[in-house]
Amino acid sequence: MNIDTFSKLQKEGLISDEEMQRVTHAENNRLFSLHWEIKSALYLGVLLLSGGLGILVYKNIDTIGHQVILLFIALLCIGCYAYCFRHRAPFSREKTESPNAFYDYALLLGSLTFVTFIGYLQFQYTVFGTAYGLATFIPMVALFATAYYFDHLGILSMAVTNLAAWAGIAITPFQILSQNDFGNENLIYIGVALGIGLVALAELSEKRNFKKHFAFTYRNFGVHIFFIATIAAMCIFEKWFGLWFLLLAAGAYLTWHRAFRDHSFYFVLLAVLYGYVGLSILLGRTVFNHLADDIYSGFLYMIFSTVGVIMFLIKLNKKIKQQ
């Protein structure tokens, strides 16, 4: 806080002497926070450690050394979980505060090393047989259990991406478009089902008041995968794209409705943008395909409709702010 600004405000008579004193006191006793530095160091450390150990195991698979590494991983995993068991807050259906950032990342390291361990057992001894689904299923269950028991959003996100991987689809933010082959009809059905399922989970956790704050994560993943799958469907299905558009429009309407109730402009934005993309594809496939000067009219449509969407969003934003 800038003391000069506040002394000006005091002269204008906007803040009282007592408040001015509090501001000066707070500013003079302000501490330099190393919160983000420590958090980044922890994140990077866990990233490097789990990645390095994961590679080490597979590189040394034929040597005696790899058992030492395995033992180290197992000890690390047990150590992390033991630390978290000792320091955790008692289980609650509500959000629980973590004691400190180290606790969060110890838990993350513990679950990552656990997943590494399972991957190794499957790779070396095929413990889970040839039913490969199990090799992704067990980490997923472990991650969900850890996320709920210790209340950790990051691990919940990992569990959701594992759930999607188990169903055969990639939904990590940067891979959702690059890693999936949306030309495949099966993938679209899975995507839509997964999206609806995740949103349903979000609704359930809010309605049953069980870990309410997990709802955002579920809904975020669910909404994105649902819309991306329906948009892909509109592009590849020759006959039924109209029907898929109806599904998309219904999804957009529900998201929109829900977002207004929650005052969440993020989901309003998603509903408008995905709905607009769907509508443009529908128009492209039905109208612009049959016009004579289709490229010119297509360009003009894009320019004017996008300007329209921008103005619409600004208006909506002001409206939501006023509410």
Partner: peptide
């Protein structure tokens, strides 16, 4: 933060 974690620790690949 949770999204970054999910992004950088991708799930085990499905054979």
């Amino acid at each position: 933060e949770s999204l970054i974690i999910a992004q950088t620790f991708p799930p085990t690949a499905r054979p």
